[in-house]
Computed example of a mutant assay.
Amino acid sequence: MSLKSVRKFAKEVLNEENNIDILINNAGVFNHPYMITEDKLEVHMAVNHFSNFLLTNLFLERMISSKPSRIIFVNSFFYKSGSFNKNDINMDFMNSKQFFKYANSKLANAYFARELDKRIKDFGFSVYTVDPGMVHTQISRHTTPAWFELLLTPVSWLIKTPLEGCRTVLYCAISEELDGVSGNFYRNCAREDWSKVCSDDDISRKLWDLSEVATRLNDLRDNNNRGLNQ
């Protein structure tokens, strides 16, 4: 995974599409073996946060011109277990366990979504964050062996199919009920309160600044795509 691929994808879309009405940030890895990407970023933060941050900012100008537009972040309730270290851009914490790397990256998602919502209030589009719940996908392939999945068969009804898992995502993407509403967290097509763990405005702004540096966002902006700054 590299941020170069994100920039390449964004360029292709911007060249082909005059309007971007909905952006669903669903890229993610879970409990991936320890890896540092070519951008010198820990893989959970690289995929789950920095790629979303970069892609969203590269699309902002086009989305503003396409308003009303919506941005949806696919998150997880595990963000509540995350923590932030302003001196460690990878939120790596001395090679902490992979689960906490995932939780930290999802906390970064939450902070980014909330900070983005503050910055785009006057630009005519909305931001939503979704927890799809436990969904049977390949995201747990680095953690769950095939034999363990067989043991889960008796309780498989507790785990959503991909179709079931995308319902809240689609609800936030197209529901007319949410017109004029922005910045909230949703699960099972219903709003839930944000955890206090992502309520620090100073961290929110600091993470945005760190993310701009990590993704070299300011180097990529041109007269047609300046992103949002404060």
Score class of each variant (00 low, 15 high):
residue 137 T to V: 05
residue 77 F to V: 15
residue 53 F to W: 01
residue 163 L to Y: 11
residue 61 E to V: 06
residue 58 L to F: 06
residue 140 S to L: 14
residue 177 E to H: 11
residue 58 L to I: 05
residue 164 E to P: 00
residue 52 N to G: 03
residue 95 N to T: 03
residue 102 Y to N: 04
residue 91 M to W: 09
residue 71 I to L: 04
residue 169 V to H: 00
residue 72 I to F: 04
residue 173 A to M: 02
residue 70 R to V: 02
residue 164 E to M: 14
residue 172 C to M: 08
residue 81 S to F: 10
residue 150 L to E: 12
residue 139 I to R: 00
residue 134 M to R: 06
residue 49 H to N: 02
residue 155 V to M: 09
residue 105 S to T: 05
residue 121 K to C: 00
residue 66 S to L: 10
residue 162 P to R: 08
residue 115 E to Y: 12
residue 61 E to Q: 14
residue 129 T to A: 13
residue 123 F to D: 08
residue 48 N to W: 07
residue 83 S to M: 06
residue 131 D to G: 04
residue 102 Y to H: 08
residue 156 S to R: 10
residue 144 T to F: 11
residue 118 K to Q: 13
residue 116 L to W: 11
residue 157 W to R: 13
residue 128 Y to K: 04
residue 81 S to Q: 13
residue 167 R to V: 03
residue 112 F to R: 01
residue 84 F to E: 11
residue 79 Y to G: 04
residue 125 F to N: 03
residue 126 S to W: 00
residue 67 K to Y: 03
residue 112 F to Y: 04
residue 161 T to E: 09
residue 78 F to R: 11
residue 118 K to T: 14
residue 78 F to Y: 12
residue 57 N to D: 03
residue 170 L to Q: 01
residue 64 I to H: 05
residue 68 P to V: 07
residue 65 S to L: 15
residue 171 Y to W: 03
residue 144 T to E: 12
residue 54 L to C: 03
residue 45 M to V: 15
residue 170 L to A: 12
residue 104 N to K: 05
residue 94 M to K: 15
residue 114 R to S: 10
residue 62 R to P: 05
residue 73 F to V: 12
residue 77 F to A: 11
residue 149 E to G: 08
residue 117 D to N: 15
residue 138 Q to G: 10
residue 105 S to P: 05
residue 88 D to S: 02
residue 154 P to E: 00
residue 96 S to Y: 09
residue 161 T to Q: 11
residue 106 K to F: 02
residue 91 M to T: 03
residue 106 K to I: 03
residue 178 L to F: 00
residue 47 V to W: 02
residue 65 S to E: 15
residue 98 Q to F: 00
residue 46 A to G: 08
residue 90 N to G: 02
residue 127 V to N: 10
residue 127 V to D: 09
residue 112 F to K: 02
residue 167 R to S: 10
residue 123 F to Q: 12
residue 78 F to M: 13
residue 133 G to H: 13
residue 98 Q to T: 09
residue 122 D to S: 14
residue 143 T to N: 09
residue 117 D to L: 08
residue 169 V to G: 07
residue 91 M to Q: 15
residue 85 N to D: 15
residue 88 D to K: 01
residue 61 E to A: 13
residue 174 I to W: 01
residue 77 F to Q: 13
residue 80 K to P: 01
residue 137 T to G: 07
residue 124 G to Q: 03
residue 118 K to R: 13
residue 171 Y to V: 04
residue 126 S to H: 04
residue 154 P to L: 02
residue 165 G to N: 00
residue 62 R to N: 14
residue 111 Y to S: 07
residue 131 D to E: 14
residue 107 L to V: 01
residue 80 K to N: 12
residue 51 S to D: 01
residue 119 R to F: 06
residue 116 L to S: 11
residue 76 S to M: 09
residue 161 T to M: 12
residue 119 R to T: 07
residue 72 I to K: 01
residue 88 D to E: 03
residue 112 F to L: 02
residue 114 R to W: 08
residue 63 M to E: 00
residue 176 E to Y: 06
residue 80 K to L: 09
residue 67 K to L: 00
residue 85 N to L: 12
residue 91 M to C: 05
residue 133 G to Y: 13
residue 174 I to S: 10
residue 139 I to K: 05
residue 90 N to I: 08
residue 77 F to L: 15
residue 56 T to V: 02
residue 170 L to F: 08
residue 60 L to S: 05
residue 111 Y to D: 09
residue 89 I to V: 13
residue 111 Y to K: 09
residue 89 I to L: 11
residue 168 T to N: 07
residue 84 F to K: 11
residue 97 K to H: 06
residue 84 F to P: 08
residue 45 M to H: 09
